[in-house]
Design a protein around this nucleic acid. Sequence first.
DNA 1: ACTTAACTTGATAAACTCTATCGAGTTTTG
DNA 2: CAAAACTCGATAGAGTTTATCAAGTTAAGT
Lengths: 153, 153
Amino acid sequence: MKLSLRGEYALRALVVLGLNYGEEVLPIQVISERQNIPKRFLEQILNDLKTLGIVESKRGVSGGYRLRLPPEEVTLAAVIRHLEGPLAPVGCVSEKFYTPCTCPDESKCGIRSIMKEVREAIVKILEQVTVAQLCDRVKHLQGTNQAVSDYII
Amino acid sequence: MKLSLRGEYALRALVVLGLNYGEEVLPIQVISERQNIPKRFLEQILNDLKTLGIVESKRGVSGGYRLRLPPEEVTLAAVIRHLEGPLAPVGCVSEKFYTPCTCPDESKCGIRSIMKEVREAIVKILEQVTVAQLCDRVKHLQGTNQAVSDYII
DNA sequence: ACTTAACTTGATAAACTCTATCGAGTTTTG
DNA sequence: CAAAACTCGATAGAGTTTATCAAGTTAAGT
């Protein structure tokens, strides 16, 4: 599982939306500036997340985007799978995007058996972590640093 | 960590060489046929593994390749890192191939903190599994299937 | 109604990576 | 000295990634 910029931007945008959950809609402009993401590209990505049903938008003057689901219900696995495809390191061990490989016999392939373990390890984390938890981490990390700054002053 | 064909071929070739460890050198032709790998491409890959010091070659009429190190000493992590680059899902959590990301503050980035965990999970497996273990799995898988076939007959 | 900020959709283009293939050369064995 | 095999560097075609643009649609506020 290699996360491209596209996927990374998506997660970063979702954190912003997650932290804003329950409030009014956020314009793309704001998300873009807050996370340093090219606006046009972000537009495309948010659109994609809308198709997936994670995000919803409001048009017009004070329009923008917001989460459609509670942050607790959005797993990183779902987002990444939709945007990037398989989480597995090779196609022949993917559950959702299986593709056969060219080895003589998959059932006797030692590499496949190891890669299955790698896949499990990755999936176990990403299927369990939600946007809500991401937001919590951010809050915690910010809190920590804030405190440190306070001490320094 | 996404394994490209290049990396997959490398591992498959190493299994063949591992199973042959202690014996004479194996010609590319044989490895290529046994694992269904385009010969010219394999050539390039084995060369690369030679540079890394994992494999050695013998030229001439009855030449070929063999492992230079005992299979127990070759970890998948080393091979993949050399051929494919970072194991980490994003550059900003890679130990060996760190690259900064564009987020406003890495130290407060929730995604980074999750991706670190993913990286750890991957590395833990791949740094610990060796070519020798891959070969053992293959032997075991073949043995199992053999037995099953016997029962069927 | 009309202006304006913002979303929507689809096209496209530059850069890069991946997968392979080729050719010409060098080495070694028998 | 011929044959088999490795060596090295170039390169090409396909596909992916990362954007950017233009033209259109929507809806809020006046």
